[in-house]
Design a protein around this nucleic acid. Structure first.
Length: 816
DNA sequence: AGCACGCCGACT
DNA sequence: GTCGGCGTGCTC
């Protein structure tokens, strides 16, 4: 095994070939980390992807500098998973590696400068920056670029360093620094090396008779050690008891009677409370379990379609327990970690320290710790967001994807686009483990797979405790307007119903899925509206903070007092946001406590916790909110959900809009009447006959999904075609425009016309100062897909040959 | 991706 | 005249 293919943490195609030095020949394995030089002096941590002997020397490979692991850190299954992701989502392995690893595990060399002693410095001929740098180096012989940035402007650093190198005053080098430091905790113990307790004990104690506190402390330590010889005594625990202080400890250490030592501690506090058993299942749940077991026996994965509050969690807990008993580990994926309290609490109570969390709110060091625990097989269950797909599991037996329809699984954050739900299905395959997708409102794609028995369809169609499902009522706003039975955005019917709830001391949820106070601030005189300076998007008015915000790039501006264009103060707002609904509700139900839950109101620290408590204590009468309120709010006292402007949800230019509206409404509806079964949902609309509202009202799952599937089939959307979107971005509009035209023409050379839509401007033509164009491809879902994908790759290669378009950023969204 | 090399506009 | 802009090319 003379050579190795190495994955580098760079967004570059393919892997790189390095020579394995003789010392590592018998140690190196696929999946280990290595240090390799890349491009001059720079050093990266790479992953061994492949080892082989024969190599046609078309170039001279460099040597691996060092081996960082004694055993593979990336399991074989993960490497297979990476390869699959790379070929399926058309992204580079390097991008995946970057996303998968906490950055502390990917050491990179750092450039630093060092003072050369061979020349005496001629201070007269130096400019100010050069003088600063040399002076600094006389104090601290080595400085890295960041440290230099503190006293030399960024732009001048390179110039200064180059000048000093030319003068042979300094040299530049690369150095690897260990970033991860395990947190260490201090412990105390009797110094048994120095004294033989049995012989000297009396002597020691009497020697301390003038220092009562020290004597006491020594005896306490002795007690603790005798009582529980294997339990280390934490220094902080001694202090916590309040009797002792640092100086007594110090003196005892000086007398060599006790010792202080350090142990590595995991930064993440884990549950230390009592461990509880889970409750008994209902008959319906038991049947579902049997069905799941049957499916698993047949090597089938499961779609668990459980109506809201049917107790999907119970099923999860049961299957998790089965898996743990079998000695295998479990991954529970959640769309977001923050809003899912109850399931985590229950698991914590049952599994205590065997449970781990992994999500984007952890610090990098915390991530490394979870990583290590998984690697050492110290965790039986991991609860995490999409990134936890990449942890180095060894014996994964079960993956559960909760709320599998949730769009958080298909988000595009910093890295490439991938669908965590679909990826989880592949990961399960590589690990030969089981998979359960769970939702009250499964995605159409999953439902379709279930109907074809590619996933076993298991239904829980009854609420826990045989509680009735909520009742839906559609209110025609036009009719209410005609009869003048309307106040603002609220029909009299809705107001009456909310009042009834208030009288009965029940809580009400009002859903309005649009942030801010008003969509647009418009000048009535000249029609001027304020656009974001970075994006082609109108700015939303937020009354609470009295400013305009761009919901895409986060740009903020103060609200204009008069029109910036014609100076008229005849400004008006259009498009109702959740803040305005809250204001209205406040006015109509002036005696009640109204709260709002949206991204903006939840930004403050503990805002969520505070609101949660208010709701739990029944202080909040009416909760107004965006889609956020559909998640994790399980309170017994909520009976009414009101949706005053439901139309806004279906009038979105997106083929998933109706599906999402259905899911959102059904999910919010699930908050109502969880215990009493008297849940009621009021939906106000101008289109009471719209199919989506009809379907929601009828609550016929089969009919609903059939309708959606028919629509998708009619307009050629997933799951009937493979959808791939290519987005091109550049600072200059004409450049992206030309690039996208060119890409379109290449596609048309190889791919049938009917599969190609565009190129055209993206719905948001400019985002963060980048102009965006997109091409949409609809490929058949049969065996031909492979051929089409080949043609797509060929087209990309041809496109990439044009160097002028290299600066155009190309993003590929497969199954977006 | 990042980093160096190389050719054109706004400044001492 | 230079400095620094970013277009282009390359990395085992």
């Amino acid at each position: 095994m003379q050579f190795a293919q190495i994955i580098l943490p760079l967004n570059l195609k393919g892997t790189f070939t390095y020579k394995v030095p003789a010392d590592f020949l018998d140690k190196i394995e696929v999946g280990m980390r290595v240090l390799v030089p890349f491009r001059g002096k720079k050093i990266y941590t790479g992953i061994v992807a492949e080892l082989f002997n024969d190599f046609e020397e078309t170039f001279v490979p460099k040597e691996i500098i060092n081996l960082l692991d004694n055993q593979p850190i990336v399991p074989q299954q993960q490497l297979e998973f990476w390869n699959w992701l790379s070929s399926y989502y058309l992204c580079n392995l390097g991008e995946i590696y970057r996303l998968a690893f906490p950055s502390s595990l990917k050491l990179e060399s750092e450039t630093y400068v060092r003072l050369l002693s061979e020349r005496t410095i001629d201070w007269q001929n130096l400019d100010a920056n050069e003088t600063y740098l040399l002076q600094a180096l006389e104090v601290r012989q080595m400085l890295n670029l960041q440290e230099i940035e503190a006293f030399i402007p960024k732009k001048e650093i390179i110039k200064t360093i180059n000048a000093l190198i030319d003068e042979r005053y300094i040299s530049v080098d690369e150095k690897i620094t260990e970033k991860y430091k395990a947190k260490e905790v201090a412990y105390l113990r009797i110094n048994r090396d120095e004294l033989n307790i049995k012989i000297h004990l009396a002597e020691v104690i009497s020697s301390l008779k003038k220092a009562k506190k020290q004597q006491e402390l020594f005896l306490l330590l002795l007690d603790k050690e005798t009582e529980n010889p294997d339990k280390p005594v934490r220094k902080s625990d001694i202090f916590d008891e309040g009797n002792f202080n640092q100086s007594q400890v110090k003196l005892l250490i000086e007398k060599k009677l006790i010792q202080e030592y350090y142990l590595e501690k995991y930064r993440i506090e884990s549950y230390e409370g009592k461990i509880e058993e889970i409750e008994e299942l209902t008959d319906i749940q038991k049947t579902a379990i049997l069905e799941i077991n049957q499916a698993f026996e047949e090597d089938k994965n499961v779609l668990l379609h459980g109506v809201t509050s049917s107790g999907k969690t119970h099923i999860y807990l049961e299957k998790i327990e089965d898996c743990v008993i079998a000695g295998e580990n479990v991954l529970l994926l959640l769309p977001e970690i923050a809003l899912t309290k109850q399931i985590t609490i229950r698991l914590e109570k049952k599994y205590g320290k065997k449970l781990g969390f992994y999500h984007n709110k952890l610090t990098d060091f915390e991530r490394v710790e979870v990583w290590k625990k998984i690697k050492n097989n110290e965790l039986q269950i991991l609860i995490g967001t999409r990134n936890s797909l990449f942890l180095p599991y060894e014996n994964l037996g079960l993956i559960i994807v909760d709320e599998e329809h949730d769009s958080a699984y298909r988000q595009r954050d910093q890295s490439f686009f991938f669908n965590a739900k679909d990826s989880a299905m592949m990961l399960a395959e590589f690990y030969q483990s089981r998979l359960i997708l769970g939702s009250a409102t499964p995605s159409l794609e999953s439902y379709d797979l279930a109907m074809k028995d590619k996933l076993r369809y298991v239904v829980l169609n009854e609420r826990f405790g045989e509680v009735d499902l909520p009742e839906f009522k559609i209110i025609d706003i036009k009719e209410a307007q005609n009869q003048k039975k309307i106040v603002g955005n609220f029909s009299q019917t809705m107001i009456d119903e909310i009042n009834r709830q208030l009288e009965e001391r029940k809580q009400t949820i009002i859903l309005h899925n649009r942030r801010g106070y008003a969509n647009v601030v418009e000048c009535e005189t000249c029609g001027h509206v304020t656009y974001c300076s970075n994006c082609d998007v109108v700015m939303t008015y937020h009354k609470a903070s009295n400013e305009l915000k761009c919901h895409y790039c986060g740009h903020r501006a103060s609200k204009p007092i008069s029109c910036p264009s014609c100076n008229s103060d005849n400004l008006n707002t259009r498009g109702i946001g959740v803040e305005q609904i809250e204001e209205e509700v406040q006015k109509i139900f002036s005696d009640s406590e109204v709260d709002r839950m949206d991204v903006d109101s939840m930004r403050k620290k503990f805002a969520y916790e505070k609101l949660y408590e208010k709701l739990e204590n029944g202080e909040t009468d009416i909760l107004v909110g965006t889609q956020m309120i559909s998640k994790g709010l399980d309170f017994d006292n909520i009976e009414l959900v009101a949706i005053p402007k439901a139309d806004s949800m279906i009038h979105v230019q997106d083929f998933r809009a109706e599906e999402r509206a259905y899911q959102l409404i059904t999910q919010v509806a699930g908050r109502a009447g969880r215990i009493s079964g008297k849940g009621k949902i009021l939906i106000q609309t101008y289109n009471p006959l719209h199919s989506v509202f009809e379907l929601i009202k009828n609550q016929n799952i089969k009919e609903t999904y059939q309708y959606f599937l028919d629509e998708r089939k009619k307009f050629l959307y997933p799951p009937f075609v493979k959808l791939i979107m290519i987005e091109l971005k550049h600072r200059k509009e004409d450049k992206v425009n030309r690039a996208s035209q060119f890409l379109g023409s290449i596609f048309r050379k190889y791919i049938p016309e009917e599969c190609i839509l565009g190129p055209e401007k993206s719905p948001i033509a400019r985002l963060n100062n980048l102009y965006q164009y997109q091409v949409l491809l609809k490929f058949p879902k049969n065996r031909n897909y492979r051929i089409y994908k080949e043609l797509l790759l060929k087209s990309f290669d041809e496109f990439d040959e044009i160097t002028a378009y290299k600066s155009v950023k190309k993003d590929v969204f497969v199954d977006f």
